[in-house]
Amino acid sequence: METISTVAELRARVREWKQAGASVGVVPTMGALHAGHLSLVQAARARMDRVITTVFVNPIQFDNADDLATYPRTLAEDGRLLARSGVDVLYAPTAAEMYPPGFATRITVAGVSTGLCGGSRPGHFDGVATVVCKLFMQTLADCAFFGEKDFQQVQVIRRMVADLDLPVGIVSCPTLREADGLALSSRNRRLTPAQRQTAVALPRVLAACARDIAAGTGVAAALSDAADRLAAAGFDSVDYVELRAETDLRPLATLLPGTPARLLAAAWLGGVRLIDGMPVPPRD
């Protein structure tokens, strides 16, 4: 595996691959890699000739300076994991490389960025869309691979790619979970042992809520009950528990025939914000 930190060197390497007829996949990450990230790498390796994994803690998508400062940074270990996983290039640019002096552009994706994480984190998805667009242009990838845990993020990126005619396919991969059901996340390592025990209530409550809605419980009542159960389990606050249409993320007051739905939630444990989501099966 080769580690590259500049756009010029990266483009030179990708140009060589493409001149040889190779397809290129990219797995964008902010590092602190875990098995969920590595599953995206494996998906990319299965479909593409060459794989780039990017590691960049993107400052413009953070709305909280403390969250940015405490976000785990483990580049050396990330590199070892990626080398063992068969990645061709680890692209780890500096902030100055990504946002040189005078940088003044933001990409705003309306609609799918409204509410959910976009409602409680102003400017977050502008930062996500901007950095992902830059990574697509820098890597010149044919396909990009993302995890469905960050479901709203995936839909924002799909909308951006469609609207800007970006020549990259978006592949979303299922959420990978711990044995007890907690979605894998780099933020999990910031939980204390007691918080980690509490955190497992998030997927369990969501799974129960999804079953209730599928069985005919009213959506508003089921969502309110889920939020109450998270608070009772020990979460400090609940940002949202919502039912949304999968394709355009519009709020759903009921399950609609032919409209895939997804239950999405975000809640806080101490200073750690956890998100999760799962599909809601259609009613019989």
Rank of each mutant, 00 (worst) to 15 (best):
A267E: 06
D165C: 07
G79C: 04
R121E: 12
A201Q: 05
S113R: 03
D142I: 06
R47C: 02
I157Q: 06
H37T: 05
L256C: 03
A220G: 00
L135I: 15
A92N: 12
L206Q: 04
G147L: 13
T130G: 12
T54K: 04
R50L: 05
V27K: 05
R187A: 10
P72H: 15
D180R: 04
M48R: 13
P93G: 08
E97A: 14
Q152P: 12
P72T: 14
D78P: 12
P260H: 01
F145G: 10
A267Y: 10
A233V: 04
F235Q: 09
I52H: 07
T105F: 04
L243K: 03
S224A: 15
T54I: 07
A179I: 01
M98C: 11
R50Q: 14
A227F: 00
D165L: 14
R73S: 14
K134G: 09
Q155E: 15
V156R: 07
A210G: 09
L81H: 10
G216L: 01
R250Q: 14
A253H: 04
A210S: 14
G115P: 05
P282L: 00
A92P: 04
A265D: 05
D180E: 11
C117Y: 04
H37G: 13
G218R: 11
V161N: 02
V219D: 02
M30F: 10
M48A: 05
V161R: 09
Y71I: 13
L264E: 09
A83H: 02
P203M: 03
P260L: 01
Q153C: 11
P203Y: 01
L223D: 02
G127V: 12
V156F: 05
A215S: 12
M1K: 00
A265F: 09
R196S: 12
I52C: 09
R211K: 13
V241A: 02
P72F: 15
Y240K: 05
P257V: 01
A208L: 09
D236W: 02
P174Q: 05
P93Y: 13
P59C: 11
L264A: 11
A227P: 00
R50D: 03
M278N: 00
M137E: 14
A266I: 11
T54D: 09
E16F: 00
T114Q: 15
A231M: 13
L82D: 04
L249C: 03
F235C: 05
L182H: 06
V24R: 07
G270L: 10
Q152Y: 03
L33V: 11
A208H: 08
L269H: 07
V168H: 02
L255M: 03
E242I: 00
A12H: 14
L33W: 10
D163S: 13
P101W: 06
W268P: 00
I52G: 08
T139S: 15
T108R: 14
A253G: 15
R121D: 10
Q153Y: 11
A201S: 10
P279L: 00
A265Y: 06
A222F: 03
V51H: 02
V14T: 13
C133F: 08
Y240H: 14
R204E: 10
Q155S: 06
R189C: 06
V27W: 07
R187K: 15
C173I: 15
A129N: 08
E9T: 10
L164R: 02
R11L: 13
R80G: 11
V272L: 12
V241H: 03
G181F: 02
A221Y: 00
W17Q: 08
V51F: 06
L252Q: 08
A214G: 15
R211S: 11
V55H: 03
